[in-house]
Nucleic acid binder design. Structure first.
Lengths: 211, 211
DNA sequence: CTCAGTTTGTTCCCACGTTCACAAACTCTT
DNA sequence: AAGAGTTTGTGAACGTGGGAACAAACTGAG
């Protein structure tokens, strides 16, 4: 379920505030969802709450971590060390949550050898060997759109089965491979769409369509 | 609709390949969706296709751009110029799609004055004045989680009504304000979740739960 | 002009996810 | 020990979104 990471974040925040137990209502508010939804989500993992009391924050946190798979080590490779790849390599949110960046790859020879976030940028050709050596299952694509499909194909060929794609390009992959797409400019466009509708409503008091 | 930007990308790709007209089937494949869904989405905008022929790529592209609001200018401010803010400021996908970054803001005085992507980093205090001056409606938050809500509140106070939040923190805003959240580590966690289930299936041939 | 072929726009149906509402279960006071 | 007060887990209604299928509309050939 895509909301588990949100719950996990909320639980971590509660732990930081030394909260030992919490109700579904509190946790739901912190996570920004309905409390019934939260309870149903959690009940799919098992009965980790106590009626009349609530949830033990530490215990629930561990159970969700385990469910997501954060109790194990996830080696990750990042391909495409431009501005975005650079930022991702330095992003503390990855390493602090059980993800370990084992290699940074770039096709541009002039960048290879450069030190980013304590790792030397290596040649894209080394991908297969690195995946084999570290047992990498997750790959991050931060290349331009034109290169994304080729990088993806090589990742799949090397055995990677989960891909996080930041390139604005639809990837075609075998069925057993998961792709999650993060398109930064799409997000802005969606905001602009809603913003425009809000403006039109303010002006026309309607849907902005002139008959 | 959240899929319009995807369609727009696909149409741009078709235009680059000098395609004048396309069927819903082609466009749907390029966008990675079902053709019936695509037709239904497009029909919400109006009847821009011709039965027996298909859609005029250029015309449809313009109509979608107009619907999203890309025919107008969208000034944007980015707050928090760390690794990620830096990458966003340099990200060509924003400027090439009608979004104009008018200011970069950071609370850290030692960074202020620094030149990033042709813009000088300015003090966070200047936010309200900048929003007023440029008519900014969209704000991007790329600060640490701890600062996000305060930045958000100041944005809302200054009149910003659409916020793109990269900080891993749930923002509370008035109803009329839109927030889109992009949580990079959540994306990785969702991948890890699926990856773990795939591994368990491969080993146990079941759901991985031991009775 | 007519008819076969093609493709859009739309209707109908289904499945999923969300929410409400309530029973089961726990705590604490008296 | 019993009852009042909480809070979880879940069953049932509801709404939304997706997909198949079909009618309407266009093209082109004969």
């Amino acid at each position: 379920m895509a909301r588990l990471p949100v719950y996990l974040r909320a639980l971590n925040a509660l732990l930081d505030a030394d909260t030992r137990t919490c109700s579904s209502e509190e946790l739901a508010t912190a996570a920004g969802v309905n409390s019934a939804k939260l309870r149903k989500d959690l009940s799919h993992l098992g009965s980790y709450g106590t009626r009349g009391v609530g949830y033990d924050v530490e215990y629930l946190r561990y159970q969700i971590s385990r469910e997501i798979g954060l109790t194990q080590d996830w080696p990750v490779v990042i391909v495409g060390i431009g501005n975005l790849g650079h930022a991702l390599a330095n992003y503390s949110g990855f390493s602090s949550r059980g993800f370990r960046t084992v290699a940074l790859l770039d096709a541009d020879p002039s960048r290879q050898g450069e030190l980013v976030a304590g790792l030397k940028i290596r040649a894209f050709d080394e991908l297969t060997a690195i995946v084999r050596e570290h047992g990498v299952a997750i790959g991050v694509i931060a290349t331009p759109a034109a290169a994304a499909q080729a990088v993806c194909d090589k990742m799949v060929g090397a055995g990677i089965r989960s891909i996080l794609n930041f390139a604005p390009s639809v990837l075609s992959v075998p069925e057993e491979v998961d792709v999650r797409m993060v398109d930064l400019s799409s997000e802005l466009q969606i905001l602009a769409y809603h913003e425009q509708r809000k403006s039109n409503q303010a002006i026309a008091g309607g849907d902005g369509v002139v008959a």
